[in-house]
Each structure stands twice: as structure tokens, then as C-alpha cells.
Nucleic acid binder design. Structure first.
Lengths: 212, 212
DNA sequence: GGAGACTAAGCAAGCGCTCACTTACCTGGA
DNA sequence: TCCAGGTAAGTGAGCGCTTGCTTAGTCTCC
């Protein structure tokens, strides 16, 4: 569930993977997944460290072998989620020709990610306030990067004449609002697929900026 | 802070207003305001009953003279917030002539309310999952009413030819996402006023539906 | 004198986190 | 080949504290 990119499952060949392999030790990874699920389902404050431990198949004390605090777990989940979202957006924007194509790509990608990974996305969007000030600052920098990608696409579109908007920052915010809010209402039980949601939001995003 | 409509402050002339006056008894009202502030600032689970009591100038036990549980306080705040939002939307839609005017009115009103009363709005949008099943059902009915108002305006606009959308429910959801998300990012310190936000979102909403 | 509003004190449960300890495995000298 | 020594992972028990809520009693004001 934390594997926020559609990467293949890590092979289980190395029983005790060392950091030298570039692999995260199994147990720490399992704890991050357990924490992400629990935080998303019940919220940070309603989640107990005992809950996280038992989801990961550990005793309550086992958590503290790998993480120094409950908030540390939240930070790792939040940071990784922000980084993945940023990387996806940067990639989508870079691979597009025109600003119109770029907007379609980033809105589709962003909305789809918020559906596909709605648990991590909820932590990213709604548990931000529960980070320590230091961790909040670190995450804030990532948020500014994400905002910058979207804003640049809108700015480019206005410059090329493809887009016409009242105000670039306001429009950027509204675009992101639509995609971010997907994480609030998305439910895996609904019949709409994340891919379909992405496609729909690519079109809706263009409506917000198109000239005429 | 809970006075979610821009009603004038209730006069302080009646020291112990009786329910016969149509007024909520002072202390219960103060408790609701205190709970709304605390829930919005820290979240339901991170808020303690002692915190609510002290914000209202009571001892911890004083809360339970007026409310049976912490969740009961959350429910009252959430229900009242939903009702106010619904009434505002219904009024805005009813007072408009064309679907275009109606959409402008409801988007402006809804976005403005989410800024002006962002504390209550956050409780309405993000603390929903912490209600008991019974209370959740009651609030869900109000949510369906709110959704229905927006959906009807979009449907009317499509019927009259003023709007052209791919899919009515999807567009309704996207419109509401933009407005709802205002409560997430709004900060009273920013220079944009709730009125300006409302005006901007009225225009953005129209962009999402306009034909051609 | 009785009803309602309120408090001081406190209970049972649960919280995040620590501690002393066991286990499993790795290492290198004889 | 062996085993002493070292290390990281993991556990059972539980500490100090906070939580939502209750109880028993006091203080009004009609």
C-alpha cells in the first residue's frame, strides 16, 4: 500500500537484505505500510502504536527498534508520498510538448494518483498539521515544488496564448484543489477506475484554463 | 465562531436565556463554540474534553451537564454546519433566474462560506468519519441534499443549453471539490478576502460547465 | 425546599514509550 | 572445526501519564 509507484514487488530472494543492497530492511518497510494504512483509515491521533505494531506482526516495542517515534513514522510516510507525487508531476510535465498537453498530463496523473493511492494521499493532504515543526518545514519545501510544476504549466500556456486565465496563482490552486479532493471522496468500491478519473480530470482541468 | 451565518452577535441582555426565548442556553452555546474551535484546530481525536471545558470557562465535568459525550458535541457542530451550508445553497439557487446565475450564486456562496467559516467547514468535511453510525447517517442525508442542489443547477443548465458538460455527476463533484478544498488551504492571515474568493470561484465554476 | 447548574475528586482504561532481557546470526582467532 | 565475543532484532512487562467520563456534593435562584 505504501508502494506508491506501480513498481514490481521486491523479490524475496535475500532473507535479510542489507542496506548495501539498496533495499529497505523488510521489517521497517512493513511498518511503514502498516502505519500508512492505519493513519489513512483512522487518522494519526486515533492510531495507536500497538495497532501499527500488530498490523506489521510485531510486539508494541518492536516499532521502536526501527523508528524513534510515532511521528517519525508519519513523517516518513508523508515525505515519501510527497516525493512520489512530485516526481510523477515533474515527469508528466517534462514529457509533454505543448502547455495543453502538459496540463492534460499533469492533471490526469495527479488526479489518478490521488485515487490510486488515496490512503497515502490522505496522509499527505490531511495529516500535515501533525508533523513536528522541523518535519513540517521539510515537507513544505516539497509542496512548493509541486505547486511550482503546475504553476509553470499554467504560466507557459498563458504566454503561448493557449490558455487565458484571470489569475495564475488562483487558477493553479483551483486545479490542484480538484485533484487533491479526489483523495477525500474516492472509495475503491465505486465503479469509476482511477484511470477514468484521471482522464475526466484532464478534461476538466483544461476547461479551467482554455481561452475564449 | 460557530455562528456560521453572518448574523449579528446575540445580545447579552438575557443572562440565562430560556429555551422559550428560542435561544440556546448560554453555556451550551459556548461549549459548542469551544468545541468547534478545538476540533478545527487540532482535530477531534487530539482534542480533549478538558480543553473544550476550559475554553468555555468550565470545569471538565461541566461539559456533561449539557452534552452526553464528546462525540455528541462533534455531531451538533457538524449537523449545524451542514444545515447552514445547505440553507445558504438552497437560498442562493432559489434567488437566481437562469442556471448561469444560479451556478454563479451557489459557487460564490459555497466557496465564500468555506473561507469565512473554515473552522466549521473543516469539521464538516474532515471529521465526518468520527461520528457514530447513527449520526453519520443523519449527516449523510444533509450531504445528499447539498449535492442535490448543485446537481440540479447543472442539470438545468444542460437542459437549457447554457451549459455543456461531459457528465453531470462528475462535473457536480468537481465543482464541489473546488469549493470544499478552500477550507483546507484557507488561512485568515492571507490577504484574499472570503468575498474575493467567492467571486473568483463563481467564475471558475462557470468555466467548468460553459458550452463551446 | 427543590430543581438545575456546576465543581472537586477521582476511576478505569488506554496511551506512547522504555527497560531488561532473549534470540539469531556474524565474526575471527586457535 | 570450534567457540567466545559482539551486534541487531525482537519481546514481555510495565511506568508515568492522560483520557473520557462519573460520582457525590455545593451553590444558587425561584
Amino acid at each position: 500500500m505504501l508502494s506508491t509507484m506501480s513498481s514490481p514487488a521486491r523479490p524475496v530472494d535475500s532473507p535479510t537484505p542489507s542496506p548495501a543492497d539498496g533495499g529497505v530492511p523488510d521489517t521497517a518497510h512493513r511498518l511503514l505500510e502498516a502505519a500508512a494504512e492505519a493513519f489513512a483509515d483512522r487518522g494519526f491521533h486515533a492510531t495507536t502504536t500497538r495497532d501499527i505494531a500488530s498490523r506489521a506482526g510485531l510486539s508494541p516495542a518492536g516499532v521502536y527498534v526501527h523508528f524513534s517515534s510515532k511521528e517519525e513514522l508519519l513523517y516518513q510516510v508523508s515525505r515519501e508520498g510527497h516525493e512520489v507525487a512530485r516526481d510523477l508531476l515533474v515527469g508528466a510535465a517534462a514529457g509533454a510538448g505543448t502547455p495543453t498537453d502538459a496540463l492534460r498530463a499533469i492533471m490526469g496523473t495527479f488526479a489518478r494518483w490521488h485515487a490510486e493511492h488515496f490512503r497515502v494521499a490522505r496522509i499527505v493532504q490531511y495529516e500535515f498539521a501533525n508533523l513536528t515543526p522541523e518535519h513540517r518545514d521539510a515537507v513544505l519545501a516539497l509542496r512548493k515544488e509541486i505547486d511550482g510544476v503546475v504553476r509553470q504549466v499554467v504560466t507557459d500556456g498563458v504566454a503561448s496564448g493557449e490558455f487565458s486565465v484571470e489569475d495564475v496563482p488562483d487558477t493553479t490552486l483551483a486545479l490542484m484543489s480538484m485533484a487533491v479532493d479526489v483523495a477525500r471522496w474516492y472509495d475503491p468500491e465505486i465503479r469509476r477506475t482511477p484511470a477514468a478519473i484521471g482522464a475526466a480530470y484532464a478534461d476538466l482541468g483544461l476547461r479551467l484554463v482554455r481561452a475564449g
